[in-house]
Deep mutational scan, measured.
Amino acid sequence: MQRVNMIMAESPGLITICLLGYLLSAECTVFLDHENANKILNRPKRYNSGKLEEFVQGNLERECMEEKCSFEEAREVFENTERTTEFWKQYVDGDQCESNPCLNGGSCKDDINSYECWCPFGFEGKNCELDVTCNIKNGRCEQFCKNSADNKVVCSCTEGYRLAENQKSCEPAVPFPCGRVSVSQTSKLTRAETVFPDVDYVNSTEAETILDNITQSTQSFNDFTRVVGGEDAKPGQFPWQVVLNGKVDAFCGGSIVNEKWIVTAAHCVETGVKITVVAGEHNIEETEHTEQKRNVIRIIPHHNYNAAINKYNHDIALLELDEPLVLNSYVTPICIADKEYTNIFLKFGSGYVSGWGRVFHKGRSALVLQYLRVPLVDRATCLRSTKFTIYNNMFCAGFHEGGRDSCQGDSGGPHVTEVEGTSFLTGIISWGEECAMKGKYGIYTKVSRYVNWIKEKTKLT
């Protein structure tokens, strides 16, 4: 034993070699072989497995989906700052455009905790909710729209109204504003409101030439003092309507412009014939205590009207009353817009006519005020429907199939267009061939041609 100890002390290297040989010859039971080890760690190889990531292109799944990435790591994937920024906006807080917040056709661009709407022409605001041009839906104005110097929408209202708090709607500024039905039992019968379409306001006024200088022999019209197929109006439903009495009662109609003036057809009036105007009328054979009678003290036909040349060209006249009318729910003026808007309103496509005229061709006159909704007829169809001249200051309205029309005794009465609950004068009943005849239409004086003249002559002093 002493000898062994001496050998170990003198030859430590020998001992180490012996131990190493023993270990190498022993069977290893701690580690699995290569094949079995792979069965336990069965993990798919990654895209760049075996390579240094710093030297390969980034992978979106590896960089940002398996674990949260930084902007720089995302930049490695896209290799483009702009594309990385677009991805980053949604990656950080989701897609803010998912709810489609942009209105009126706006395009949404996502941002971090926010979004941006790219608005089409005519709109602005956070969600493109603000109209900035009158060309689109009248700028959301209830009545009139004008573009300011910086191309912003400025709404306005006709006389007797003021802008509401929203700067879009119009509200009454006087007790009985024009064009409004205020009798409670008839307010439910107000005709369907007309909503502004998209309009090209630059070209809204037709490029028409008034044929002022045409000389033409007097034409022989049949029954051209021209509501057939209409309905009984309720008291106060058309408070701007008046009836004219002269040699015979209810020979023509008219509309209240203001307390002192009536507008009617020029062919209705004769110099030297006494005319009485009755406002607030409903049943011409009954006294309903809503009527107001006034005498006409002055007749002003349009300066281009000449019955000797043509009885229905420039067929418009103004009547001055001896005493002002007292405005109330049964006696209310009709609204008159400017030339541009009167023309736009007419193009809405349908209007209402009213009167006490004959209820059928050569038949009896109506006792109760009649009204009828009539569609506008395109000019080409209008011209083809008659052998008589249709001037540019006239328009056609009615039904091709016949059966409904204005008729004798309705002449001078109103053709009105309702705009968001307020009625505007767009025409004056003038003439036609018979009444409600198939293929024939009622012919009306186009008020847009005469609004400046009306307003100039009827100013209240």
Rank of each mutant, 00 (worst) to 15 (best):
E171L: 12
G254A: 04
L130K: 08
H314N: 12
N59F: 04
A308T: 10
T417F: 02
S99V: 05
N151Q: 09
N203T: 13
G13S: 13
K168M: 12
Q237F: 11
C268I: 02
G21T: 15
H289G: 13
I336D: 01
P172E: 05
Y330L: 05
V359E: 06
V374R: 04
K459Q: 14
S220M: 07
D93L: 05
L319N: 00
R43Y: 05
E67Y: 04
A279D: 01
N343Y: 03
F87Q: 15
K293E: 09
H314K: 02
T422E: 02
V326N: 09
R191Y: 07
L321Y: 01
G403F: 10
N36L: 08
C145E: 02
Y371L: 11
Q370M: 05
S70K: 14
S25D: 05
N104G: 02
S329T: 14
Q57R: 13
T218P: 12
E54F: 07
G246V: 05
T215C: 04
F71L: 15
V243L: 07
G439E: 07
H400S: 14
P101F: 02
I390K: 06
E420W: 15
S187T: 12
N245F: 05
E231H: 13
I299E: 05
Y47K: 05
N213L: 07
M8W: 12
G236V: 05
V248Y: 11
F348A: 14
L367H: 13
F55T: 15
G230P: 11
I262V: 12
F388I: 14
G363E: 14
S354A: 15
N343P: 02
I136E: 14
D249P: 08
I284C: 04
L321M: 07
K339A: 14
G413T: 07
L460N: 08
T158Y: 04
N306R: 10
F55Y: 09
C128M: 00
P375G: 14
K39F: 08
V326D: 13
N104L: 01
D322G: 06
H302W: 06
A266P: 01
F78Q: 15
T290Y: 10
I210Q: 12
K68F: 05
I390Q: 09
A9L: 12
K39W: 13
T194N: 06
A397E: 01
P172Q: 07
R294Y: 02
S385H: 15
E259G: 03
P324F: 03
T426S: 03
V368W: 04
G413R: 04
C157R: 00
N310R: 06
G351N: 06
S204M: 14
G357F: 10
P235C: 03
D249S: 12
V199H: 11
K89S: 12
S99L: 05
L372T: 15
I17K: 02
G254L: 01
N36D: 13
T276S: 09
W453A: 00
E66T: 06
F221H: 12
P375S: 12
Q96C: 03
H314R: 02
G427M: 01
C108T: 00
H400C: 06
I256V: 07
M8C: 11
D315K: 00
I344Q: 08
G179L: 01
K459A: 07
N258Q: 02
S406P: 15
D405R: 15
S156C: 04
S430L: 13
V331S: 03
G413N: 05
N127P: 01
V331N: 02
F121N: 08
F71N: 15
V227Q: 07
K260Q: 05
I136V: 09
N295C: 04
F395D: 01
G236E: 03
C435H: 04
N304Y: 09
A233S: 08
K387F: 05
S169Q: 08
Q57F: 06
K459M: 14
Q90C: 04
R191S: 14
G432M: 06
K188H: 07
R294M: 02
L52G: 08
A436P: 08
G58C: 03
A26F: 05
H267E: 02
Q370H: 14
G363A: 07
G94A: 11
A250V: 09
E281L: 12
R358Q: 12
D200K: 12
E82P: 13
E129Q: 06
P235V: 07
G125Q: 01
Q167T: 11
E456A: 12
A266K: 02
G421Y: 04
A337N: 00
E124S: 06
K457M: 14
V199C: 05
N104F: 02
P301C: 08
K234D: 10
V269P: 02
T190C: 05
V199E: 12
F31Q: 15
N138V: 03
K459P: 04
I17P: 03
E171H: 07
K274M: 08
C252Y: 01
E165Q: 11
T264N: 00
L460D: 14
V4W: 08
G122C: 00
P239H: 01
W261L: 01
C407V: 06
K188A: 13
S107D: 11
N151A: 08
L163V: 10
V368M: 12
R62V: 04
E281A: 11
I344L: 13
V154M: 11
I15L: 09
Q216W: 10
G439I: 02
A265K: 00
T445C: 03
C97H: 01
G439Y: 06
H289V: 08
K274V: 07
G402A: 14
Q2M: 12
G13K: 14
C252T: 01
I428N: 01
